[in-house]
Simulated scan of single mutants.
Amino acid sequence: MRRRHHFHIDHAGHSVSATVETGRTAVVAVLVDGKETGHATTHHDHPVTVHVELPTDPPTTASIRTTPGPGLPRCLFETPTTPPHIMSPRPY
């Protein structure tokens, strides 16, 4: 059975959201300021990392490390200059 889980964080004035669709194949989509900037797939509960850029001057590279399971998915937001931050789950 497939389920969608949503995560969010604000960083450097930008909105970063991740949607994790679980199931036999997990699909991760990342939006920065409402625009899809990255996606990845993985099988079962294998972790996956999605690399994106934040539209700062100069652009900031970031990565979202997603663990689809077991249990509820988890997302970590990382940039080269900051420690990893846990992305907050959203109920919608």
Results as ranks from 00 to 15, higher is better:
67 T>G: 15
68 P>D: 10
60 T>Y: 14
46 H>F: 12
16 V>A: 02
15 S>H: 01
21 E>H: 02
62 A>G: 09
88 S>L: 04
86 I>E: 12
61 T>M: 13
66 T>Q: 08
14 H>V: 06
46 H>V: 13
2 R>G: 10
74 R>P: 12
70 P>W: 15
67 T>L: 12
34 G>M: 00
90 R>Y: 06
67 T>Q: 11
56 T>N: 15
37 T>I: 06
9 I>M: 01
19 T>W: 02
42 T>M: 00
6 H>W: 05
53 E>F: 07
13 G>E: 01
63 S>K: 15
56 T>W: 04
21 E>T: 04
85 H>F: 08
83 P>I: 14
43 H>N: 06
4 R>W: 03
51 H>E: 14
82 T>L: 15
36 E>Y: 10
86 I>M: 03
88 S>C: 10
19 T>N: 01
10 D>P: 06
21 E>Y: 06
44 H>G: 10
63 S>N: 14
7 F>R: 03
20 V>W: 08
27 V>P: 02
10 D>Y: 07
15 S>N: 02
9 I>S: 06
73 P>G: 08
3 R>H: 14
24 R>S: 14
54 L>K: 04
24 R>D: 10
83 P>N: 13
28 V>P: 00
73 P>V: 05
59 P>E: 11
70 P>L: 15
77 F>E: 09
78 E>T: 07
14 H>Y: 00
24 R>V: 13
50 V>G: 08
12 A>W: 07
24 R>Q: 07
43 H>E: 10
8 H>D: 05
4 R>N: 13
12 A>P: 12
67 T>F: 04
72 L>H: 15
50 V>A: 09
24 R>Y: 10
17 S>M: 01
39 H>G: 04
61 T>N: 15
78 E>S: 09
59 P>V: 08
8 H>M: 06
